[in-house]
């Protein structure tokens, strides 16, 4: 905990962020370049799915990132509630839009993959449905921040929403799978198929690329959020003078 406490000081955070930002951005770009090259040019086309299998390299890391970001958001909220860490609120707030975009990307690429594979853009498959609900949870969380003017109050309420959501995510996932298995016994399940290393390695690189992308954008978002609050305070001070 002591290590995190050290970065509770916004000035110290900003100084550190400034130093690591170019490196993080460079690593992200490199990982995406390598990952996309292997994914789009090198990896073999699937014998069943053909070239459409390449959508997976965009889709799977996005889906993985979407759930990870939600967990991260809930963890940040928990730290904010328990330790009153001043940057944890901002961290949760900054993570939400990125997570929502990852979720949206996973949904869209899933639909694009579904058209050639299932013959339709959308089926009420268990994973698609639970991701749709996850997307709604993200939207609700973002809406809370927008609806409440007072920063500290918004932070409290948003933390409650994120934590309640985090308790519910596994329950929702479980119930959607149950529902799906009752209604559609056999549309498709991708379990059991072992992944060959020529696909697995680019996939892992893409996962790393998405993680670094999140890290870069997240720190940048915290930075701009801090700046925004500073401007707001300056404006208030100015208004009081007049």
């Amino acid at each position: 905990m002591a290590r995190i406490e050290k970065f509770a000081n916004p000035t110290r955070f900003l100084r550190l962020q400034e130093k690591v930002q170019p490196w993080l951005a460079a690593i992200t770009a490199l990982l995406f370049a390598v990952g996309l090259y292997y994914a789009l040019a090198k990896a073999p086309a699937d014998y069943q799915q053909g070239e459409t299998v390449r959508i997976m390299f965009i889709h799977v890391p996005a889906a993985w990132g979407a759930t990870m970001v939600y967990a991260f958001m809930a963890l940040s909220s928990a730290i904010a509630v328990i330790f009153r860490h001043p940057l944890a609120d901002l961290s949760a707030k900054a993570a939400a839009p990125i997570g929502a975009v990852f979720t949206f990307l996973a949904l869209v690429t899933g639909a694009l993959w579904g058209k050639p594979m299932w013959g339709t853009y959308w089926v009420w498959d268990a994973r698609l449905t639970s991701f749709f609900v996850l997307f709604l949870l993200y939207l609700g969380y973002i809406a809370v921040w927008q609806a409440i003017d007072d920063y500290h109050r918004a932070a409290k309420i948003a933390a409650i929403v994120a934590l309640v959501g985090a308790v519910n995510v596994p329950i929702i996932k479980f119930s959607v799978e149950w529902w799906n298995s009752l209604h559609q016994p056999s549309i498709m399940s991708s379990s059991g198929s072992s992944v060959h290393s020529s696909i697995l390695i680019p996939l892992l690189i893409m996962v790393a690329a998405y993680s670094f992308l999140f890290l870069t954008l997240h720190l940048l978002a915290i930075r701009s959020e801090l700046r925004k609050r500073k401007i707001h305070q300056l404006q208030l001070a100015q208004a009081q003078k007049v």
Partner: peptide
């Protein structure tokens, strides 16, 4: 927007 997603498990079961 906040509550309806949480209703999903109750609805299904």
């Amino acid at each position: 927007l906040l509550v309806l997603p949480l209703y999903v498990p109750v609805l299904i079961f």
